[in-house]
Simulated assay, not measured.
Amino acid sequence: MGPQNDTQISEFFLLGFSEESELQLLIFGLFFSLYLVTVLGNLLIILAVISASHLHTPMYFFLSNLSFVDISFTSTTVPKMLVNIQMQRKVITYVGCIIQIYFFALFAGLDNFLLAVMAYDRYVAICHPLHYTLTMNPRLCGFLVLVSWVTSALNSLLHSLMVLRLSFCTDLEIQHFFCEPNQVVHLACSDTFLNDLVVYITAVLLAGGPLSGILYSYSRILSSIRAISSAQGKYKAFSTCVSHLSVVSLFYCTLLGVYLSSAVTHNSPSSATASVMYTVVTPMLNPFIYSLRNKDIKNIKSALRRLFGEEIIQKPIWWIFKNCF
């Protein structure tokens, strides 16, 4: 008898990190804390950019979009895991799994494209400063973000449709805390060659392309910085790129590290643990990275005061959460 058709599949089982019940409370508390910090940190960045007129620049426009994508990226995977732990179940429906794959691919792709767009913004600012305002006009900025969304949406739709064509049998256990596309594909009974081919082609085009653009932009930036005569001028020019370069390094190093290590070891449980780095930790750290050496973002308190009023900003953060429940 051939493999069952995928329309008969109703649910998958997300095995997560540990089968031990005593560790579930610890895992729930850890991920809930990380998720809360991620949402709050990125939301503050967005609110600061909206409320402060001096932050209405291309760089902060792209940063606010990146913060929104980071919130959405983490929200695609962590809430479902928290609900499963709370309800002591490990089930995700077939439809829910497909939806999760779609949004996971969508926001991962958007992270990739937005980082490339932000690198281009820094390239224009440093290498062509006199033409920066003219080049990075609102129309171009909006167009770059729109192209990023459309391309990522089409790419994620393609991957979702490729999973829908597969047939699954009885092995429906995913050794991960979310429907990681690669693991779902390799649970199928049917031939996955076409799926793997699509993954490789899209990875080269849609991941390799932006990464090449980032590397090219920074090679030109470094050349321009070396041509600056004063040490103070070099420091000032390079300091505008430090935050973005740190985020780029963190995102690509963790992402490539996870997939290269999993390809070598084929150890799914360790892959699930390592995936936390780019799905949870990196989106959480991005607001801190952009805030550490950024004088504009350090003024976030005054910016938010204009948005919410003096009284709420003066309250400690625990008071705000206390009055939300």
Rank of each mutant, 00 (worst) to 15 (best):
I289A: 08
F113Q: 02
S223W: 03
L140I: 00
V83I: 04
A119R: 03
S21Y: 14
G257A: 09
Q4V: 15
L40S: 11
L158E: 11
F193K: 08
S230Y: 15
D296M: 11
P316A: 14
Q8N: 06
A227C: 02
P138D: 14
F103V: 07
S229H: 15
N84A: 08
G109K: 03
T151H: 11
C169P: 03
I45R: 01
L256A: 14
Y278E: 00
L44C: 14
N65E: 14
V147M: 13
C324H: 08
F61E: 01
L44V: 05
V78D: 02
A303G: 07
S270C: 06
A52T: 13
D70M: 13
R89A: 06
V124N: 00
S219I: 09
N42Y: 04
M59A: 07
Y278W: 09
P210E: 06
L307R: 04
S18V: 04
I126L: 10
G209A: 09
H159Y: 09
N182Q: 12
P58E: 04
F62V: 11
Y200L: 12
L140P: 01
S217M: 00
A105K: 01
S167L: 00
C324T: 05
T202D: 13
Y102H: 06
C179P: 09
F73Y: 10
V91E: 13
Q232T: 14
L114S: 01
T282I: 10
R89N: 06
S51R: 12
P181E: 02
L15E: 14
L245N: 03
T57K: 06
T202N: 12
N182P: 15
F288I: 15
S219V: 02
L40V: 05
K322F: 15
A231N: 11
R165E: 10
L34G: 08
I98A: 11
H54T: 09
Q314I: 01
I225V: 08
C324P: 02
A231S: 12
L146M: 07
T7W: 14
L30A: 13
L43E: 15
K236N: 11
F168S: 04
Y120C: 09
F12P: 08
N294E: 07
V199R: 14
F168V: 01
I174A: 00
L250H: 13
L146I: 05
Q86S: 03
R226C: 14
A52F: 15
N299A: 11
E173D: 10
I98E: 12
Q4P: 07
P58C: 07
